[in-house]
C-alpha cells in the first residue's frame, strides 16, 4: 500500500482570494440579511431572514458529506493517509455545520410552526432525521477513537463512512417525503420551486450559499494542513 503523503499544498493566492471573497460576501450577507427589505408574508414574517443562514448551512453540510465520502472512497483505493485526514476533517466540519443548521432550524420552527405552543422540538420528520444524521457522524468519531493503529483506523472508518452514506438518502430524502411535514420538501414537493424564493431575496441568498461554501473550503484546507502536520510530528517526535 502506498503511504507517500506529500504535504497538502494550498495555492497562497487562491487562498487569499477566497478568504477576501468570503469575508466580503458573509459581511454583506449578514448586513443585508438583518437590515434588508424582505417580502412581508403571513406566518413567516421576519423569520424569512433565516433563509439566508439556515439553508446555506445545510447545503454546506451536504457538500461536506460528499467531500468526506469521496476521500473515504479514495482512501480505500490507495491507502494514502492524507485521504483519511481529509475524510475526517470534512466529516468534522459537516458535524459543525449540521449542528449550526439544526439550531437555526429549531429557532425558525419555534417562531413559525410552533408559534404559541412554546415548543422548540416537535419531531418534524426533517428535523428528526437531521438529528439522526448528526448521531451517525458522532458514531463515526467514536469508532475512530476506538482504534489505535492508524492504517486499520483509516480503513474501518472509511468503510463505516461509506456504508453510512448509502443509508443517508433514505434518511434525508425518502422517509421525510413520505411523512406529513411542515418543512418545504415534504410529501413529494421539492424544497425550491419557482414560487418559494422571492426575486429580491435571491440577491442575498445566492451570495450566502457561495459564502458559506467558501468558508467551508477555508476551514477545511486549514484543518487538513494542521492535521497533516500533527500526523507528521507524531511519526517523527524528534522533529
Amino acid at each position: 500500500m502506498a503511504r507517500s503523503s506529500p504535504s497538502p499544498v494550498v495555492n497562497h493566492r487562491l487562498y487569499r482570494l477566497v478568504r477576501a471573497t468570503v469575508a466580503v460576501l458573509l459581511t454583506g450577507v449578514i448586513l443585508a440579511g438583518f437590515l434588508g427589505r424582505i417580502p412581508e408574508l403571513d406566518i413567516l414574517e421576519q423569520s424569512a431572514r433565516n433563509l439566508y443562514f439556515h439553508v446555506p448551512m445545510w447545503f454546506t453540510l451536504m457538500g461536506a458529506t460528499i467531500v468526506s465520502a469521496y476521500h473515504s472512497l479514495r482512501y480505500l483505493q490507495c491507502g494514502d493517509r492524507l485521504r483519511d485526514l481529509r475524510a475526517r476533517e470534512a466529516a468534522w466540519l459537516g458535524l459543525i455545520f449540521g449542528i449550526l443548521g439544526i439550531i437555526t432550524g429549531m429557532v425558525w420552527a419555534r417562531f413559525t410552526w410552533y408559534e404559541g405552543t412554546g415548543k422548540w422540538w416537535n419531531f418534524d420528520p426533517k428535523q428528526s432525521m437531521a438529528a439522526v444524521l448528526l448521531l451517525i457522524y458522532g458514531a463515526y468519531f467514536v469508532l475512530r477513537d476506538s482504534i489505535e493503529e492508524p492504517d486499520t483506523r483509516g480503513r474501518i472508518a472509511a468503510v463505516y463512512n461509506l456504508f453510512a452514506v448509502v443509508t443517508m438518502p433514505f434518511l434525508l430524502y425518502i422517509i421525510p417525503r413520505q411523512l406529513p411535514s411542515l418543512h418545504p420538501g415534504g410529501e413529494g414537493s421539492p424544497a425550491f420551486s419557482q414560487t418559494d424564493l422571492a426575486p429580491a431575496m435571491r440577491w442575498v441568498f445566492y451570495p450566502s450559499v457561495l459564502g458559506f461554501l467558501g468558508l467551508f473550503w477555508l476551514l477545511y484546507t486549514q484543518r487538513v494542513r494542521l492535521a497533516w502536520i500533527r500526523d507528521q510530528l507524531r511519526d517523527t517526535p524528534d522533529l
Partner: peptide, 29 residues
C-alpha cells in the same frame, strides 16, 4: 447492516457497546 457492522466492530480494539452505537442511527429508516 448488523453483519457488516459486526465485522467492523471485530476489528476495533475497544469493543464494549460499540455495535449498538454504530448500528442504531443507521437503522432509523
Amino acid at each position: 447492516a448488523t453483519t457488516l457492522l459486526a465485522a467492523l466492530v471485530a476489528r476495533a480494539a475497544r469493543r464494549g457497546p460499540l455495535l449498538p452505537v454504530l448500528l442504531l442511527p443507521l437503522l432509523v429508516p
